[in-house]
C-alpha cells in the first residue's frame, strides 16, 4: 500500500475535495475529482513500466466472514440477486472419506453454517475468489469490439457503454469471474476498485478484510506488503496450466481448489 501512498498524496487530496465540496453535493465534488484526475493528467503521473497491480491472498488467514463480498456489493452496486458476484468466498470441506465438498451460499456474504459432522472432516478452509486480472486475459482476447481491455497498470476493465453484450468473454473466463449485469445488459466484473485506486484508496474488499487475508499492491515494487508476501510464502495461481498468467496470487493453497 505504501507505494500507492507515495504516488498520490491522499491527505492533501481528500482535504482538497472536502474544501472543494463546501456547499456542493457529492456529485459535483466527484465531477471535480474527475477534473483533477482527468485521464491525461493521471497518465502523465503514471510510469506504466513499474506499476503492475496484483493481489495476494493468504488462504490460511481467511475466516469466511464474507465482509469482502458485502463490501464489494456496496462499493460497486453489484446486483443483489445471489447469482452475480464480483468476489465470493468458497468453503472447501475435505472429508475423511476422500470426498471434497465445496460451497458458496450467497457467495459467502452471509457467512457459512456448519453442515458436516466434525469428526468426519479431514480439514476445511475458505478460499476467496475474484477476477484474476490475468496478464494473458482470455476475456480481453475474445471481446469482438474492444469493450474489455487491460489498462497500463494491468487491471482488466469493462467499458459498459461500449459492450454489445455477446457474452463471449463470460465463456472465455476460466474462473467464472464475469457475469451479465441484469440492469445494464453488459458484462460486469471486479475492477480491483479502479475508481478507488485512482483516489489512492485500497480496493473495498482489502479495506474491510479483518484478518489481512487480502494483500493489495504493486507486483513490481522491490519492497511492499505484496513483495513481502511473495518472499515469505509459496505462491500458486489458479488454473496455472491455462497460461492466463493471473495477477491474483494464493499462498498455501490446497490442490483441491479449482
Amino acid at each position: 500500500m505504501s507505494n500507492i501512498k507515495r504516488e498520490f498524496d491522499r491527505r492533501k487530496f481528500i482535504k482538497g475535495c472536502l474544501l472543494g465540496g463546501v456547499g456542493l453535493g457529492i456529485l459535483p465534488t466527484l465531477s471535480k475529482m474527475h477534473e483533477v484526475l482527468g485521464s491525461t493528467e493521471k497518465l502523465a503521473e503514471y510510469v506504466p513500466e513499474i506499476r503492475s497491480y496484483g493481489m495476494g491472498i493468504n488462504v490460511k488467514a481467511c475466516i469466511g466472514c464474507g465482509k469482502c463480498v458485502n463490501a464489494c456489493e456496496q462499493e460497486n452496486n453489484v446486483p443483489k440477486d445471489p447469482m452475480y458476484y464480483r468476489t465470493w468466498v468458497e468453503r472447501y470441506t475435505l472429508l475423511l472419506s476422500g470426498e471434497t465438498i465445496v460451497e458458496s451460499p450467497f457467495g459467502g456474504s452471509r457467512g457459512f453454517t456448519d453442515t458436516h459432522q466434525e469428526s468426519k472432516i479431514l480439514k476445511s478452509f475458505f478460499v476467496p475468489k475474484l477476477c484474476n486480472h490475468c496478464k494473458n486475459a482470455p476475456c480481453v482476447q475474445v471481446c469482438p469490439v474492444g469493450a474489455t481491455f487491460t489498462t497500463s497498470e494491468g487491471v482488466v476493465l469493462v467499458d459498459k457503454d461500449y459492450c454489445i453484450g455477446c457474452s463471449y468473454c463470460l465463456q472465455a473466463c476460466p474462473y467464472g469471474a464475469r457475469f451479465m449485469n441484469p440492469i445494464t445488459h453488459t458484462a460486469d466484473k471486479c475492477t480491483f476498485c479502479y475508481h478507488r485506486l485512482s483516489r489512492g484508496l485500497l480496493p473495498a474488499c482489502v479495506e474491510v478484510c479483518p484478518t489481512k487475508a487480502r494483500i493489495f499492491g504493486d507486483t513490481k515494487l522491490r519492497s511492499s506488503q505484496l513483495t513481502r508476501f511473495f518472499r515469505q510464502n509459496e505462491i500458486q495461481v489458479l488454473k496455472g496450466g491455462l497460461n492466463t498468467d493471473p495477477q491474483v496470487f494464493y499462498a498455501r493453497l490446497d490442490g483441491e481448489v479449482r
Binding site: 493521471k42 463490501a71 476493465l157 467499458d159 457503454d161 475508481h195 479495506e207
Partner: peptide, 17 residues
C-alpha cells in the same frame, strides 16, 4: 484497442468506503 474515455467513466464512479 478500447475507448480512452471508458477509463474516465470508471475513475469517476462514486466511492462508498
Amino acid at each position: 484497442h478500447y475507448r480512452a474515455t471508458a477509463i474516465d467513466t470508471i475513475i469517476a464512479l462514486p466511492i462508498n468506503y
